Simulated assay, not measured.
Amino acid sequence: MPKITFPRMGESWRTFKMLLEDLGNEVVPPPRPSKRTLDLGVRYSPEFACFPLKILMGTYLETIEMGADTIVTTGGVGPCRAGEYAMLHHNILKDLGHEVRMIVFEPPRLYPFNFIKNVWALNRARVSIRGIIALVKRAWRKLQALDNAEKLSHIVRPREINRGTTSRVYRKVLEWIDQAYTTEQIIEAEAAALEALRSVPQNPEREVLKVGIVGEIYVLLEPASNLEIEETLGNLGVEVERSMFLTGWTRDNTWNETIEGLTVKEAAAPYLPELVGGHGRDSIGNTVLYAKRGFDGVIQLAPFTCIPEIVARTILTRVSRDHDIPVLTFFLDEQTGKAGMTTRLEAFVDLLSRKKRASRRIVTLTG
């Protein structure tokens, strides 16, 4: 029986593992990216390749060491190199002597037959179509539960009384959701997880800053790639709202685009009316929307050499000026260090705090 692995993006691996096993596959879960993962990826990837390509290269090599011989991943469309990752990874692995099978899912809205063919290839248990639909719905419910728990942790962490409590509770409730199997169990685990997070001792009077995070999907969703920036910001007293979660991205690329997606396009239209690949236009549109919602600042996360986000970065300077919202950009690669990032974040948070206090004084004087 083939041993299947896939890219790791945050905690979503728990959902994909369950779904693939339900379809009758033996799964090799991708480990959390580590220094060794990155070292392997950097060693065997082109020097100027995108940061996610290098991390995934290392992840695949580690899972192959663990016995994986089949990789399930996604493709892409538009002017972004991510759509070529699968082919490049396959060629590099072949050159290294690893004969692995790549199953590449293209956007189902554009390539429905590719989607059906790949699902059937993974359906080793020969589950009926009705059964597959039921399994996908259950996996979707687990993915929603994981996303909802993460969203709540971002709200609770900056208000916690004892630093680190939210992160400890969050790690614990992830296991509850992971162990839930039936839809009823998933719903119960989600309810218990949210209640546990709400029960973290908090200071409701504490003033917190609100910062939106935009950027490329992989470095947004995988904490190891962004050096746990959301947790760091929470510990600095910042409530984080990430512009992208896997549930929203899946909806936009599987069914019709959501109302939120259309709103993002409309918000970006005065600055960038055309698709530039990746999530460049989304970064601009979401920054505009965060400004309109009264957020204190925005942080853009981008892989080094990511062309769509480089385009977005040049435009965000104007967006920042037009909407009076500070924007901080991190271009991430294997040279990015935790200490340097934390120093920049502390300075940015201090700037936002000063700006907020100054605005409050102006309102008081004019009032």
Rank of each mutant, 00 (worst) to 15 (best):
R32L: 12
D22Y: 11
L40V: 04
D22I: 00
D22P: 01
V27C: 04
P33C: 04
P29H: 12
D22F: 07
E26Y: 07
R32M: 14
T37V: 04
E21H: 08
L23E: 01
T37Q: 09
L23H: 03
L38E: 05
V28T: 05
D39M: 14
P46C: 02
D22W: 10
Y44S: 00
V42P: 06
S45E: 00
S45A: 14
Y44D: 02
P46Q: 10
R36H: 14
P30C: 10
R43A: 12
R43M: 13
V27P: 01
P30V: 04
M18S: 11
L20V: 09
Y44A: 03
Y44R: 02
P31G: 06
K35G: 12
T37A: 08
R43D: 03
G24A: 03
V28M: 02
P33R: 15
P30S: 13
S45N: 06
V28P: 00
P29F: 06
S34Q: 12
S45W: 05
N25P: 08
R32E: 11
T37H: 09
R43C: 00
V27Q: 03
V27W: 00
P29R: 11
P33M: 09
E21W: 03
E26D: 10
L38D: 09
P31K: 13
K35L: 09
R32I: 14
K35W: 13
P29C: 09
P31I: 00
L40G: 01
L19S: 01
P29K: 11
P30W: 09
N25G: 02
P30N: 11
N25V: 05
G24S: 07
L38T: 08
P30Q: 12
V42D: 04
K17H: 09
M18H: 15
S34V: 03
L23Y: 05
V28I: 15
N25A: 03
D22A: 14
L20Q: 01
M18R: 15
M18A: 10
L38Y: 11
V28C: 02
K17M: 04
S34W: 15
R32T: 13
S45V: 00
L40I: 01
R32P: 04
P31C: 04
P31N: 07
G24F: 11
L38W: 07
D39G: 14
S34E: 07
R36V: 12
E26P: 00
S45D: 07
L23T: 00
R43K: 15
L20A: 05
P30Y: 10
N25C: 06
P29M: 05
D39H: 13
E21M: 06
P33H: 11
R36N: 11
R36C: 06
L20H: 05
L19A: 07
Y44H: 12
P30A: 12
D39Q: 15
E21T: 12
P31Y: 06
Y44Q: 05
P30L: 01
G41Q: 08
T37F: 09
L19P: 02
L38Q: 07
L20D: 00
D22H: 13
N25E: 04
D22L: 07
L40N: 02
S45C: 06
